[in-house]
Each structure stands twice: as C-alpha cells, then as structure tokens.
C-alpha cells in the first residue's frame, strides 16, 4: 500500500513538472468555476416545471411544443409532452448510467433506448438528447482554458476521456457574480462551431433557475426557445416518479 502511494506521488510530481505550475493553477480555477456553475444549474434537491418549446425556422415560422419536466438530484429526469396532440404523452425518462426509456402511447409500452440517440435532435428541436442529459458538466467535461472579462469567466470544456460526447469542445460564458451560464458555444467533432445557447436566469427563493434557453443551430439556421414556467424547487419529488411504472402511466 505504502509503495503504491509513493508511486502516485511521484507521478503527480512528474505531471506538475510537465504541465507547468501556472497552467495547472489556471485549470484549477476553471474547475472551481465549473463546479460552482454546476451548483447553480443543478440547484435544489428536486425541481419540476412546465416547458414551452418554440421552434423557429429560417423564415421565422414558429411551431410550439409543451411539456412537463421533473428532475431529482442531478441524474434523474422525466420529460413528458403535453402538446401538440400528435405528441402528447410521449415521454422520456433519463436515469443514472445512461439508462434511458422512451414511452410512446400508441405502442402502450416503454422502449429502452441506447446512447446512440444522444447526438440526435430531441423531438425536432435544436436540443439534442445530450443537451438535455441530467448530469453535471464537471462530471463530463474537463475545463481547459480560462479568460476573464469584466462580467464573465470564459472557460473551455473538453469531454473527459471516458465520456462519449458529440462535442469536441464547449466555450461557456459564466456570470461572475452569480455563476450561472449566459452563453454556450458548442463545437462539433470536426471543430466547427455549430450551436449557440443563450441563457436567461431568474431567481426563485434561494435558487437561480433557467428561465429561458435560446438554442441556435448555425448549420441549420434554425433555433429553439425553451421557456421554463411554474418552476418549483424542493417539493419532495418521490423516486417513484422516475420509474417505468410512472413512465407508462398516461
């Protein structure tokens, strides 16, 4: 055991020597900022809200989707469409370890779905399943760079080695005062910028919450506004909500 500890310390010292103390300090700051952002984004023991999705095409035509969302902790989320009629009842349950289920009322049963859907558009919106994944950024990404402006920390994220992501990097502008994200630029695997998300936050009780996300897909010249309403924190959501038993109850 002692021998192993000695080896680990030597390895850490070697890393320090290779990377340079200044760069490591910057990364550490970036990690702290990212963790603080996670604390704001994933505030509360649980959260429930109503969502309006407005899909806007290049001509400005709008289509509207409505849904209810329940979230507990950082990795349990249930998303159920309530409108339009053709999609009402379709539900998506996300659980830890990338376990996901889709419920289609027409088939009367749930369907296990694998993580290959993560890069796909969620219900025709500009959000992918990965964008809606209920997992902290600091668990999925490593902060690589840091820039500071008068109002923002700007950090660059890259996926951790064991994380499957369809983004090569994400650049986030984080509010310096309250640590919520205000802007995210996402880059595809080829390094091309292809999505920009602009966030509006509001405060309810002790928590800051996302009031609106405006996601623009630069390749498709299409955008989606996701507007959160009737947001409630810490209502004591039962774990039963995040089960197949509840998912199929429509």
């Amino acid at each position: 055991m002692y021998a192993m500890k000695t080896m680990m310390i030597k390895a850490l010292l070697l890393l320090l020597a290779l990377s340079g103390a200044g760069e490591l300090a910057m990364a550490a700051d970036a990690e702290t900022i990212l963790r603080r952002m996670d604390d704001v984004v994933f505030a509360g023991e649980d959260q429930k809200s109503s969502i309006t999705l407005i899909l806007i095409d290049r001509s400005g035509h709008e289509r509207i989707r409505e849904a209810r969302v329940w979230q507990k902790g950082v990795n349990k989320r249930l998303f159920r469409f309530t409108a339009p009629a053709a999609e009402a009842g379709i539900a998506f349950l996300s659980l830890p370890d990338e376990v996901m289920y889709l419920y289609m009322p027409a088939y009367g049963r749930e369907r296990r779905i694998a993580s290959h859907v993560k890069n796909q558009s969620f219900a025709g919106t500009d959000f992918s399943y990965e964008d809606l994944e209920a997992e902290k950024y600091s668990k999925r990404f490593s902060p690589k760079d840091l820039e500071e402006t008068e109002d923002h920390y700007i950090i660059q994220l890259e996926p951790l080695p064991d994380v499957r992501s369809d983004y090569s990097k994400i650049i986030i502008h984080i509010n310096k005062k309250h640590f919520y994200p205000e802007k995210m630029k996402s880059f595809d695997r080829g390094g091309q910028e292809f999505k920009v998300a602009e966030y509006t936050f509001d405060k309810k009780g002790d928590y800051w919450y996302t009031k609106e996300i405006h996601m623009t897909n630069l390749k498709r010249d299409h955008s989606t506004r996701m507007i959160f309403e009737e947001v409630a924190f810490d209502t004591g959501l039962d774990d039963e909500i995040f089960t197949i038993r509840n998912l199929t109850r429509y």
Partner: peptide, 10 residues
C-alpha cells in the same frame, strides 16, 4: 434489452 457501447440491443 440493453446496450453494447452506444448500440441498442434486445
């Protein structure tokens, strides 16, 4: 039903 890597299997 489950997955192997990112592939869904059943």
């Amino acid at each position: 039903a489950g997955s192997i890597g990112r592939v869904g299997v059943w």
